[in-house]
Design a binder for these strands. Structure first.
Ligand SMILES: [Zn+2]
Ligand SMILES: [Zn+2]
Ligand SMILES: [Zn+2]
Ligand SMILES: [Zn+2]
Lengths: 164, 164
DNA sequence: AAAAACCCTGTAGCCACTCCGGGGTCAAGA
DNA sequence: TCTTGACCCCGGAGTGGCTACAGGGTTTTT
């Protein structure tokens, strides 16, 4: 089985397969006389395992550790548990922040209906105001920058930017 | 205002501020005689805006476009809307897949209680089985690899890896 | 025989930072 | 006065997980 066939079977780009080999995740297969990689069913299974873990968004370092544990069946599986626990906690944390994020964005999106000049756009107004510390959930309330004239000075050549 | 003070006010690492300047996101401030950057309130506001957008997980390219629109108040705000819509769709997509992911991981976690050898660990068994195509939501059902003997051959020197 | 598809290596790019090394500048303390 | 320490400068490299060349060789199809 050549790299293309393996890639088709597992739906993995051959470049990715070579990458996994380079970083030591997938063992280097033997080569044919012409230098082509020759894979067997063991590689196919291992690659499928890797991809399944990746689909669970595990970092490759974790996948590496799981593969190592698979190769050493007598080890204690506590390591497996810890690894999954940690990863799950990580995913749940990300999920929570992403939920809050989506909510914020939906709210922000509701600020503009129909077209008008950017100077009057509710979305931009909201973004500027929030960045200046009012009703901003994302940064803490400690970022108050200016007390009035809540407009961003431009960065274009024509709009002045005076320092200090 | 020097870079450290700006960083404290906005809770942004000075290295990040310099990075924003390098990529043209934050305009280069004037320098004092000793070469130190001297920032004004305009920079403070602009940086706060950038960070707020980043907190909404917008890519810097999008932030750049928003800043440009802010600098050109007469442009149509349709661009703003499209940008936010696209980003929101992106976030919602990620949210959905992350929800499915968390569910899968929780289910996987339930496969192992107590400690035993990895050879008998329900988590690893499940991972191997799923990678081989059964009851696997993440990859399509077309990844059937081997029909029986669903065990991953090891990649360690001692465990044999024969090709073809 | 020619064209298309495949394979090889090595390198560089993506994102948004983050860290490092090797220096210069400036205030407060011993 | 000397020294410590906190700042600041710059350029370059590293992170993760790929992806995309460039510039060759080989195999398969037309
Ligand atoms: Zn799967
Ligand atoms: Zn609008
Ligand atoms: Zn904010
Ligand atoms: Zn177990």
């Amino acid at each position: 089985m050549r790299i293309g066939a393996l890639g088709q079977a597992t739906r993995v780009d051959p470049e990715t397969i070579r990458y996994y080999e380079r970083i030591g995740l997938l063992p280097a297969p033997v080569r044919r006389a012409n230098g082509y990689r020759a894979y067997g069913p063991a590689h196919l299974e291992r690659l499928a395992f890797i991809r399944h873990c990746r689909a669970l968004d595990m970092p490759l370092a974790d996948v590496q550790r799981l593969l190592h544990l698979l190769d050493h069946p007598l080890d204690d599986c506590q390591d497996v548990d810890r690894l999954i626990d940690t990863h799950l906690a990580h995913v749940q944390g990300k999920l929570q922040s992403l939920q809050a994020l989506a909510q914020q964005l939906e709210q922000l999106r509701g600020r503009c209906h129909g077209q008008h000049a950017t100077a009057e756009c509710g979305i931009l107004h909201e973004l500027v105001a929030a960045a200046q510390g009012e009703s901003c959930v994302c940064h803490g309330n400690s970022v108050q920058t200016s007390q009035k004239g809540r407009r961003l000075r431009g960065a274009c050549p024509e709009s002045g930017y005076e320092p200090e």
